[in-house]
Amino acid sequence: MREGRVLKALGGYFFVHDFESKEVYRCKIRGKLKNNGFDVITGDLVKFDLLEDGSGVVEERLERKNSLFRPVIANIDQVIITFAILEPDLDLKLLDRLLVLAEIADLEVVICINKVELSSLEMAKKQLFSYQKIGYKVIYTSVKEEIGLDDLEEVLKDNVSVFAGPSGVGKSSLLNSIQSDLELKVGEVSQRIKRGRHTTRHVELLSLDNGGWVADTPGFSSLDLSFINAEELQYFFPELMDYLGQCKFSTCSHSHEPHCAVKEAVTKEGIAEERYQNYLKFLEEIENKKRSW
C-alpha cells in the first residue's frame, strides 16, 4: 500500500502526492472510512491503493499531529500570519485573534507584514515592536521593492506552512514572487471598502522548490473564539505567562479584580496596552457568547 499527503479535496476527489513516486493521484475514499467517522482533509497523511485505471482509493488516514478548522487543513508545521501595513490597513485586533488561534493549535508562528513600501520599514517595525518583544518572529516584505523575500523563502524551506490573514494583503503575490510557476491569482483591494477580494477558493498544498509545502487559503476577516473557555484565554497570550499565579485571587480573570499582577504589568509597560485591551475584548466576547447559550 502506498503512502502520501492529500494536496487538495475537490469535487468529491482527493488528490494525493505519493511520497515514493512523487506523482499525484486522484483518489476516492473507501466507504469504510466514512462509515467509521473518519474525515479526510487537505494535509492528511494517508495510505492508498492504485486501481487499474490509474486512479486511487484511500484506505486509511494516519494520525494527525494537528488540524485547523478555518482554513480546514491538517499536519501543519507553522502558520504565516500575513497582513499589509496599508491597503488594507493593519488590523491588530484581527492579528491578535489569529495569534490566539495559532497558540491554541500549538503552531509555530511567523508574522509577515507586507507592502512595507506603502509606509516605511521603520514605521512597520515600530508598530510590530511589541510582538517581537513577546518572542514572535516578524518579517517585513514588499513584492514591488523586493524587500524580505529571501527571509520569507528561508522561513518556508522544508516546512509545511499555511498562510493566514485577510484578503488583499498580498499572500498570493508573495508566493508568486518566491516561485513564479505557482501562478496564483492575485486580487485587488476595493477602493470603496478598503478590503481585498477573495482570490483563493479552496485549500490546496503547493510544492515549493526549496523542499517546503505551502497552503494558499481563502482569506477571512473574522473568527469566533467562543469555543474556548474564558479562563483558558490567558494561556494563549504568551506575555501573560510570567505573571500568572501572582495575582491576589487564584481565579483572577485580569479584567476587574484588585491586586492583579497582569494589570500592574500593563501599567508598568511590561505588557503592551493594545494587546491587553484585545485580551479584554476577546474575554468579553467569549463570556457574552456563553451567557447567550
Score class of each variant (00 low, 15 high):
Ser292Asn: 07
Asp77Ser: 06
Lys8Leu: 14
Ser67Val: 07
His198Glu: 14
Tyr131Trp: 01
Val110Ala: 04
Ile80Ala: 08
Leu68His: 03
Asp39Arg: 10
Gln127Val: 03
Arg97Gln: 06
Glu273Phe: 11
Asp216Met: 00
Cys252Tyr: 09
Tyr235Leu: 14
Gly12Phe: 07
Ile111Leu: 09
Ala102Ser: 15
Ser253Val: 07
Ala265Val: 13
Gly56Ser: 11
Val155Ile: 14
Ile271Phe: 07
Leu182Ala: 01
Val189Asp: 10
Gly43Val: 12
Thr82Met: 01
Ile134Leu: 01
Ile193Asn: 15
Asn75Glu: 13
Ser142Asn: 04
Asp49Thr: 12
Val46Cys: 04
Phe129Gln: 04
Lys32Glu: 06
Gly212Leu: 00
Gln179Tyr: 01
His17Gln: 12
His254Met: 09
Leu45Cys: 14
Glu232Lys: 12
Ile147Tyr: 05
Ser190Thr: 13
Glu23Ala: 10
Gly211Asp: 05
Tyr25Cys: 09
Leu223Asn: 02
Asn159Cys: 02
Glu154Met: 13
Asp53Cys: 08
Phe19Ile: 12
Glu20Met: 07
Lys289Phe: 05
Asn210Cys: 04
Cys112Leu: 02
Val203Tyr: 11
Leu62Ile: 14
Leu50Phe: 09
Ala230Val: 12
Arg197Val: 15
Glu122Ile: 13
Val110Asp: 00
Leu244Phe: 06
Glu264Thr: 14
Val110Phe: 00
Glu59Cys: 11
Asn159Glu: 02
Pro218Cys: 02
Asn210Ile: 02
Arg61Phe: 02
Asn36Ala: 05
Asn114Ser: 13
Arg2Val: 10
Leu156Asn: 04
Lys185Gln: 14
His202Trp: 12
Leu86Met: 13
Pro258Ser: 06
Ser255Thr: 12
Val262Thr: 07
Asp158Tyr: 12
Tyr279Ile: 08
Ile147His: 03
Gln234Cys: 06
Glu183Met: 05
Pro258Gly: 08
Lys290Gly: 06
Asn159Tyr: 07
Tyr235Pro: 09
Gly31Gln: 00
Val155Arg: 08
